[in-house]
Amino acid sequence: MNVVVCVKQIPDPAAPGALDPNTHTLDRSGKLILDDSDAYGVEMGLQLAAGDGDEVILVSMAPNGETSGLRTALAMGAAKAILVSDDALAGTDALGTAKVLAAAIKRAEPDLVLTATESTDGYTGTIPAQVAELLGLPSITFAKKIAVDGGSVKVERQTEAGYDEVECPLPAVVSVTAGVVEPRYPSFKGIMAAKSKPVDVLSVSDLGVGADQVGASGARQEITDVSKVEERAGGEIVVDEGDGADRVLAFLEELKVI
C-alpha cells in the first residue's frame, strides 16, 4: 500500500511569529521545521504502510526549496518526498495550495492520503476537503483512530458530542488529529539514512497547474490591515504561601460567583 502524507514546513512556533510588512503574509524567511501536527500523519502512515513494498511518500509545498522539515519526516521512516518549490508560490492561498498538492499527489498514485486537520501556522483547515474534492475522492476528517481493512479505511471521527465510526473505500483522504498515534523520534540511523533519500523537486509548471492559480495574484483574497490587539491589563500575581485558595475565594466572592 502506498500512503501519501501531506506535510508542511513552518517557522518554529516556539519563536515569536511575524508578518511580512509588505504582503502581510506569514514571514517564512527563517529556518523552517516540520509542523508538529504533521508528525502524527507521518507516524500513522508508517504504521499502515509497514508491509513489503509499502511506501510512505511525503508531499509538500514551499516557495524556497526548503527541505529541513522533510528530512525530519524522512528520518522517521518515509521513503521519499515530492517537494513543489517555486518562487511563484509565495502568497498562495489555501485553494491554490490544494490545487498544487492534489496535482503532486496524483503522481504518487496513493491508496491513502493522510493530512493533519490544520497547519499550526496558517490553520485555515480547509485543505483536506479541498484536496479530496480536487482528486474526486471520499474524505474522512478529524480521525482519532484509523485502521485499513482490505480495500477500505475505518475511522473514528471526532464529533461535537463524541465520535462516529465512519468507513469508506480506498483510495481516500483522511485528516488526523493530534493523538491519533504517538509519533516516533527519528533514530540516529534514520537521520543518517534520510540524508540520501530522494526528494523530487517540481515546479508549478511541471505539475501543469496554471500560474494564475497560485501566488499572491492567484489568491483572490488579501489582508488589508494588521494591528496589535490591546493586551489584557496585567492582573495580580501572588505566590502561594498557603493562602492561595483564600485568595481565589475572595476573588470569586468579589465577582459574586459564590
Partner: peptide
C-alpha cells in the same frame, strides 16, 4: 494580532 481581510 488582529487582521482584516477581504476577497478580491
Amino acid at each position: 494580532t488582529a487582521l482584516s481581510a477581504r476577497f478580491t
